[in-house]
Design a protein around this nucleic acid. Structure first.
Lengths: 155, 155
DNA sequence: GCAGCTGGGTTTCAGAACGCAACCTATCCG
DNA sequence: CGGATAGGTTGCGTTCTGAAACCCAGCTGC
């Protein structure tokens, strides 16, 4: 049964992209994961239009990837900030995949523009793809995507 | 030095997203990686507008992620198809990251809609994030993104 | 006690991107 | 010659995005 016989949108890749696959969501998540948590900081750092940022934060919060947390600096009224939440914390693996690819193929001669480290021990981090037989698949893995139990035929 | 002091667009995540971070590119790459290589098949399976598909294929080809390969079925004139090429073959790691996340958080009770297997041995594939000290970081890694040698201050 | 500042947005409107359908064009077959 | 078909391109209307202005609540200084 060819891949084309199955519904494109049911695939987990498509579903995940529908959630965070626009031009800004992953950058917002990157910044939040890096400690940029407040609206104005995000808007300033990302260069995103404020209405778009507002809409993205709402969507990501509604989806449970971010949480709004109240905080209060001294002498200022209570405000709130955004933090990674629940499943959102696992999205950093996707960010790491983008970072790794970009470092390998888009970095200039000066080297990678950002480094990803293990927060606990400070060592650089790397992503490996391996199969349940224990083979390491390397950077250019030979893979096959096939319909799984939750697949649906194309409408 | 806070993360906000560094240019958002220089980051490898941002650069990679600028290349493939629109609503369709990664789905096109998923399909091409899965053996859907011809224009009409892609258009039909993805449900993408033909002009948009045309433009995406050109961009991805220009960027060196896809190559156009001539082929000829019997009794039909020569045509061409698209295949993953060079750095494009390494993008499947990003697709695997999306798939893994979607399987964990967006799959229904029936199970994952698609399975990713090692083409050589047929075993399911998984992604692991580990640090150079050898710690396995698990699905919710505690990471720190910091400016690297190629970083630039914010303009 | 009120003017101004600040964080965190919403509103408005123009321009870019997208989706749909129609059309074009080689080539091969009958 | 007249389809059939793969692989696009063109034109047009709708939707999404971006920039900038505006709003609003609460603190602070005067």
């Amino acid at each position: 049964m060819p891949f084309t016989a199955y519904d494109s949108e049911t695939c987990s890749i498509a579903r995940t992209l529908a959630l965070v696959g626009d031009r800004w969501s992953l950058l917002v998540l990157r910044d939040v994961a890096s400690g940029v948590r407040r609206f104005d900081e995000l808007a300033g750092h990302l260069g995103i239009a404020r209405n778009v940022l507002s809409e993205r934060l709402r969507r990501l919060t509604d989806a449970g990837l971010l949480e709004r947390v109240a905080y209060r600096d001294e002498g200022v009224r209570a405000r709130h900030e955004y933090r990674l939440h629940g499943p959102g914390r696992e999205l950093v693996v996707i960010l790491a995949a983008f970072l790794t690819w970009g470092d390998r193929h888009l970095a200039g001669p000066e080297g990678p523009p950002a480094l990803l480290r293990h927060a606990d021990c400070g060592a650089p981090v790397h992503l490996t793809l391996s199969c349940d037989e224990g083979h390491d698949l390397g950077p250019r893995p030979r893979l096959r995507l096939e319909p799984g139990p939750g697949s649906r035929p194309r409408p």
